[in-house]
Design a protein around this nucleic acid. Structure first.
Length: 456
DNA sequence: GGAACAGTCTCTCTGTAGGT
DNA sequence: ACCTACAGAGAGACTGTTCC
């Protein structure tokens, strides 16, 4: 099987010699002119060339609001600071609510139990002490070796409010400086929060770090990818398309409506234009877009954690109860999971799809807990709600087993087996029900009335 | 005592959706 | 456009229990 382009990129990064020319990672047409300039310009601590354009205090990017030059051992880097004050609104929420996120079990639960990690079973809350939100803007999605992260945005709650620090690449040749500056900023005591970062942001940084021989701290931090938590929570949302894009959830969950926001597809083009012409104003909307993504990510994380905390006692209304049930269930929080599943399954205002899914999850979890009578009641609810034959067949089979083996009601077991056989799809399923029916008939013919094997 | 069964776990496969 | 985590379904292995 052919290796993925990301893997190929990693091989290139490992296989090539020292990154003696910063233009290695540079889209061809832009790098040519830089190489000429670089031939007589200063070098960094590693003897690698520094892009002369950013070495000047008035270099490109510095014209941006809040921008400053940060000097690293590998050249200067453009950094843009911004503060969202705590009392400011972001949709229906206040910015200071982002500061309520705690590094505890509930956050670990949202992360699918991956924050503690195998190496540090009790890392929380005593291990990492900072929570950093991270979002990249890149030169595209399919740029191969030319795909560069030109803007790395980091957001963090501070005493003053939600502070964003954006590391901007003023030219492709300045990448090493940016990578070093980002490493220095992040340190190793943080928990990373991203949106789809496991698939996108972190792998991109890993490749850029390998290409430039600057291993990225961001790749080794404990990581909460909110996309997956959000999907579990809101994918069964009653709203139309069940999309879990950040901009969609930002609107539906937080009530944020962005006006005039730059579209994602437009971002690479703006950056290329900026690199050619040095017009920093082109990047202002991109920087704003990145800051808002960070703020929304933080607000969404805070909201999700609040749901997890409060839902333990009182399940929320609507489809969120089911999503919360899934999160508790995966994390092994049985009682809260049961409460949420039950709440969603019995909520007559919800769609049948959602109630059915909740009833099935409830039945499966109760069965795992060996609470068979309650499980049977949940399977009956699945039948009552109707739906796909496959689901009904599963419920019929579970009830046939329950009545045959646990409560010894053979007639009732046969009734479910007959109905299940009618709904069976495929030869395997039909044969399975036939065997069950034949056995039940034999037992009934003998007049066998057997005691319950297991009870709740 | 071997066969049959229920339940759980793991693995594989497929489809979906998210990032710029 | 490209890549990948995840969910769901199905198959098979395995364990423990009961049937005959």
């Amino acid at each position: 099987m052919a290796s993925s382009s990301l893997s190929r990129l990693r091989e290139i990064a490992r296989g090539s010699g020292p990154a003696t020319d910063a233009g290695n990672a540079t889209p061809g047409e832009v790098s040519k002119s830089f190489r000429r300039e670089l031939s007589y310009e200063p070098v960094d601590d590693d003897g690698l060339p520094i892009d002369p354009r950013i070495a000047r205090p008035d270099g490109p990017g510095v014209g941006l609001a809040g921008a400053r030059m940060e000097t690293t051992a590998h050249g200067p880097c453009v950094v843009v600071d911004h503060l969202f004050e705590g009392d400011r609104s972001h949709g229906r929420v206040r910015v200071h609510e982002c500061g309520a996120v705690r590094l505890d079990d509930t956050l670990d639960l949202l992360a699918g139990r991956c924050l503690r990690g195998a190496a540090a079973p009790d890392a929380l809350p005593l291990g990492p002490t900072r929570l950093v939100y991270f979002d990249l803007e890149t030169t595209g999605l399919s740029g191969g070796a030319g795909m560069v992260a030109f803007l790395a945005g980091v957001g963090e709650w501070t005493a003053d409010g939600f502070r964003t620090t954006q590391f901007l690449l003023p030219s492709f040749a300045a990448e090493r400086a940016l990578l070093h500056a980002l490493n220095a900023y992040l340190g190793d005591d943080a928990v990373l929060v991203t949106y789809n970062g496991r698939t996108f942001d972190v792998p991109v940084m890993e490749v850029r770090g390998e290409m430039q021989r600057v291993p990225q701290v961001v790749c080794s931090l404990p990581h909460l990818d909110m996309l997956h938590a959000a999907r579990r929570l809101w994918r069964m949302s009653e709203e139309g398309d069940r999309s879990c894009r950040l901009t969609h959830l930002e609107e539906s969950v937080l009530g944020v409506g962005r006006v005039g926001d730059v579209g994602g597809f437009e971002i690479p083009a703006r950056y290329f234009q900026f690199v050619r012409g040095g017009n920093a104003a082109l990047l202002e909307p991109v920087l704003l877009h990145n800051r808002l993504d960070l703020l929304s990510l933080a607000a969404l994380t805070a909201h999700a954690q609040r749901l997890v905390c409060e839902g333990r006692e009182v399940p929320p209304g609507g489809s969120t109860a089911f999503g919360l049930g899934v999160i508790y269930d995966r994390g092994g929080w049985v009682e809260p999971a049961l409460k949420c599943y039950r709440s969603a399954a019995e909520d007559h205002w919800q769609t049948r799809d959602l109630r059915r899914a909740a009833a099935r999850s409830l039945a499966r979890l109760l069965r795992r807990q060996r609470r068979f009578e309650e499980a049977a009641a949940a399977w009956r609810l699945v039948l009552q709600l109707g739906g796909r034959p496959q689901l009904l067949r599963e419920a019929r089979e579970a009830l046939a087993i329950h009545h045959e083996h646990r409560v010894g009601q053979l007639e009732e077991a046969r009734r479910h087996a007959v109905a299940g056989a009618e709904q069976a799809i495929g030869r395997g399923e039909r044969e399975q029900f036939s065997r069950r029916l034949a056995r039940l008939e034999r037992k009934l013919a003998r007049g066998a009335v057997r005691p319950a094997l297991w009870t709740d």
